[in-house]
Simulated assay, not measured.
Amino acid sequence: MLEVTANLPRGPVFLAGETLCCDVTFTNTSKENQSGYEILAWASVQIICQCTVCESRVQLPRENILSAEEASSTGCDTSFVPNKAHGKHFLKNIIEGERGLTVLCTKPTILFCDLKLAPGMSRTYQYEEVIPTDAPPSFRGQAVKYSYKVIVGTQRLEKATKMVRVPFRVLVLYGLNDISVYNETEEIAPSNPFLHNCRKETSVLDVALQVISTVTARKTPHSYNITNARGRVAKFLLFKQAYKLGEDIVGMFDFSVGTVPCVQYSVTLQSEEQISEECRRKPSQGTTVTSYVKHQEMCLHTVRSHVNIPIPLTATPGFITDIVCQRWRLHFEFVTSLTDIPGPESALSDTEERLWQGPSTLNVETMVWDLNIKVFPTNPIHASSVTLMKTSATIHLGD
Rank of each mutant, 00 (worst) to 15 (best):
K200R: 07
N372P: 06
T268K: 03
R169L: 01
G286P: 10
D399V: 05
R123E: 14
G97W: 01
A71Y: 09
L269Q: 13
I47W: 03
A118R: 11
F90T: 02
S191K: 15
P283T: 04
A43W: 01
F168M: 03
R327S: 12
T287R: 05
E63A: 03
Q50M: 02
T302M: 02
D399K: 06
F14Y: 15
V181D: 09
P317I: 00
N192Y: 08
P342T: 12
S213C: 02
E352K: 04
K374Q: 02
S346T: 13
F334D: 10
T391Y: 00
A347F: 01
K92S: 12
G141E: 04
S284K: 06
L20P: 08
H396Q: 07
G358V: 05
E96K: 04
E63M: 00
Y182M: 13
A68H: 11
L101Y: 07
L355P: 00
K390G: 10
K88C: 09
E69Q: 11
Y174C: 07
G175E: 06
G258H: 13
T124R: 04
K390P: 06
P342W: 04
Q285H: 12
V307R: 07
I110F: 03
R329S: 13
T339D: 13
W356H: 14
E345N: 11
D399W: 01
I311F: 06
R281Y: 09
C76W: 07
F26S: 06
S305H: 09
G11F: 03
H382E: 14
P261M: 01
E70W: 07
T29C: 01
R165K: 15
A85L: 06
Q285R: 09
G286E: 06
V267M: 12
G246E: 07
F194Y: 13
K162L: 05
G246C: 14
A85H: 08
C76G: 12
F90I: 04
V368E: 08
P61Y: 06
N177V: 02
D350Q: 04
N363W: 02
T361K: 12
T378C: 09
L209K: 15
P344G: 09
D248K: 12
E55M: 02
T109Q: 10
P221R: 13
T351H: 02
T288M: 10
P108F: 05
A135K: 04
F332N: 09
L388D: 14
V307I: 15
D254N: 15
C22F: 00
K294S: 15
V130H: 08
H295R: 01
T220D: 12
Y146C: 04
F80V: 05
S138W: 01
M389I: 12
I94E: 01
E184S: 10
P137Q: 01
S266V: 11
R218C: 11
R327Q: 08
R99L: 05
